[in-house]
Nucleic acid binder design. Structure first.
Lengths: 221, 221
DNA sequence: ACCGATAAAATTGTATACAAATCCATCTGA
DNA sequence: TCAGATGGATTTGTATACAATTTTATCGGT
């Protein structure tokens, strides 16, 4: 029986952060069309807040490449082309490879135990076939690796990619068919961490990314 | 007497963008110490603007990993450890390798001509020994490559690294001793673009990064 | 009908006002 | 002396007001 809870991403987020998350997901899921203009006033009415937090959320969206703010003109949604998404898998693969290498080197004993626990939970949800939960713990598993690298830049960029990836595919629908396959890939990664084998971890991470790309509907290069 | 107006090299930047650039450079050059708190009111007085643009600049600084904003507490400067900077060279190397590969594939004829022109200017300033000008055209040369990848995320991340790198070494002092060496490395990259040879470009870019790391005082792994 | 000029409306940019949270010096009681 | 309480000062978070710019609608002349 599993007693441990999956730690929530955060308890209470600030207003701009919430707006950012909401708008980001809406954009990535296509609820707001590329090219559309985000009018401050409209978002204000929609979420019943003033313009100040809305503008701050826009700043964050711009720096994550989701909108383009043209001075005195407004904020426009940037669309991701198929090429952009395919590129992203390549960029993520390169950094995941570096991340696991550093994480193996720099991971503390406690961090390893958290990773082990995350894997166990993953196994649990795979057996129960709960795809939605799997998606959550999957993100958590990777976050633990990012965190263990002790490098903020890497963490931030990889987290962005993770969110993009999560949103640009019909997650829970697609993941169910691949639960066992995905679990095994994480098992390979976990084993490499257990053995503190950097090269094995790199190979496992690269394979995981390539398979993820394939599962998302992209043929491999 | 009013004569013809010379258009500025770059369009006038917005107030928050200027604040962001100024604060970013101050932080990277150590004028603002790591751990220091950026008080909104103080920045307002210093630049004689209101809090709104200051807060927007803070947002940008946070997403570039230069400050950490703790809700209801304030903005604190994040210091870069020697490990952080060494890591950054590794991260940059990985993406520069991808960038030149994509750039060779995707570069237009006009973009190639711009790169050629940039190299020529670089050669000119090397002969004149103008290290400061070299630094500028050097950044421009790499920007042309980033731009040719047609990938916004890659452009943004690499631009960040470029600015970090530029600021975390005593640029003009150090570069003078290496002008010829640096020019040759760019020549190798340019040649690979001319030949549209992806592998050669990758190798040249990787060597360029490794040498840059060494010139910045880091021994190679 | 079309084009440009012009004015009104809408939108963004900046400043300021007010609310909420935090910080900090002082006080109290053991 | 010191831990904790307390209240004022400071600082941040949000709302709103005003200024500058852009967009839209209207109008007049050709």
């Amino acid at each position: 029986m599993i007693t441990t809870r999956i730690p929530p991403v955060s308890a209470t987020l600030s207003l701009p952060q919430n707006l950012f998350n909401q708008l980001r997901d809406d954009i990535l899921q296509g609820k707001i069309a590329p090219g559309a203009k985000l009018t401050e006033h409209r978002i204000c009415k929609e979420y019943n807040v003033s313009r100040t937090p809305v503008r701050e959320a826009f700043q964050k969206l711009e720096l994550d490449g989701l909108i383009q703010i043209i001075p005195n003109r407004g904020a426009f949604v940037i669309g991701l082309s198929r090429q952009d998404i395919e590129d992203m898998y390549e960029l993520r693969k390169a950094y995941e490879a570096i991340a696991v290498r550093w994480a193996v080197e720099r991971m503390t004993e406690q961090e390893f135990e958290e990773l082990e626990e995350a894997y166990d939970i993953m196994e649990f949800y795979t057996q129960k076939g709960e795809a939605e939960k799997m998606l959550q713990i999957n993100m958590h598993f990777h976050q633990l690796i990012y965190s263990a690298t002790k490098n903020r830049m890497l963490q931030h960029v990889l987290t962005s990619y993770q969110i993009y990836t999560k949103n640009t595919k019909v997650s829970s629908e697609y993941i169910r068919a691949y639960l066992d396959e995905v679990l095994d890939e994480h098992w390979q990664i976990f084993l490499a961490f257990k053995a503190k084998d950097k090269d094995a971890a790199t190979q496992a991470a690269i394979r995981h990314m390539e398979n993820g790309k394939r599962r998302a509907g992209f043929d491999l290069d």
